[in-house]
Design a protein around this nucleic acid. Sequence first.
DNA 1: TCTGGGGTCCTAGGACCC
DNA 2: TCTGGGGTCCTAGGACCC
Length: 416
Amino acid sequence: MIALVDCNNFYASCETIFRPELKEKPIIVLSNQDGAVISRSNASKVLGVKMGVPYYQIKEICDKYGVQIFSSNYALYNSMSKRVMSILGNFAVSQEIYSIDESFLDLNGIDNLTAYSEKMRTTVMQWTSIPISVGLGSTKVLAKFANYLAKKHKFLDNVCNLEELGETRVNKAMQITDVAEVWGVGWRVSRKLKQMNINTVYDLKIANPSHIRKIFNINMERVVQELNGIKCIDLEELKKANRHIISSRNFDHEVTSRDDLKSAFIYHIENVCGKMRKQNLFARQIIFCARTNRFKDNYFSTSIEIAIPSALDSFRYISSYIDRALDAIYKPDIKYKKCGVIVNGLITGEYVTKDLFDNTNIKHDKVLPAVEKVRMRFGKSAIKLASANLSDAWKMEQRFLSKRYTTDLNELLEVV
DNA sequence: TCTGGGGTCCTAGGACCC
DNA sequence: TCTGGGGTCCTAGGACCC
């Protein structure tokens, strides 16, 4: 059996751990730039606050009902995620950490799975204060469906074991569930399925797999098979290396100056290089992109790809491409709203071919670890490229940021 | 005024090869 | 003027996920 374990309202739940007075209260967590709602406590859901709505549209409701607002605090969420995942890992034969708040567990050979899941719930709750839901099924798609039921139906109390429910009741549940709830079926595919008169999860389950493959693709065929209990999607215990790494962000206002854009690019390059170094990855291609506000007329987006002759990770070296990128991208009459950097063609250190005539790296090999050390000790902004100081026009808006209770000694919870 | 960020995978079609 | 068959590799675009 496979379990899909999912943290309930994860970011919102994290925010209440160190603010217990907020449990049961309406709270929401906002995206970067305090733009849109990305997590809600149950009490906020009751108030009708929808996922993904921009904050300014619900500000009135929030003020009226005293909804507590938080900016996203990934230092906190990541550290809580690690704790939850490591507890869950101890319960399983093997584990795939699927996202920051979800994990697939292989529970083969374990008896009495419903009781076992209850025990997982109480343990995670006791040790971290994070509530979880458990869905049990014979395939990943079924485990996901079970998890959906576990949350949807109160009487299940956050644990749903399809095997225990029995085929008749599972089919019945599938018959009353919209096909869009299936893992892998998004709104476009569900629209098309409905035109084919496939409206519920059950309709999709009994559809002809090869027909589905012809119309959609092989992944949709796998989904159909998995709904029927035929395993097609493996549990991936080992995390695959990144195919690409992105850093991108909206500006809090529209940007027109070349220097502002440049300093944002430098910020993103440092970000991306930091992530590459952590995984010992080197890039062979870098993409700079920038765009205007996508909610306005005359939406414009532009990008440039630059090949890196000998794969490198050094941000100082990659920085030399910025001016080239700006020459190609920057236009003074464009109001930029977002920009970012993507690195591609990632390879691990041992496969890097060094450029025979390039000796800039020799010194640099020593500089970078030193820079890292300074940053570890004194914080990320303690040392940076001189050119990164051109402007801070692109800085993040985080008006409602909570403390980094679990990752920063200066921000520990104080008990009075 | 204000609308997130970071990922994965698949397919069609073009360029190129013998 | 007519123009095969069988491949590979790359990229853009579209779909999905949390």
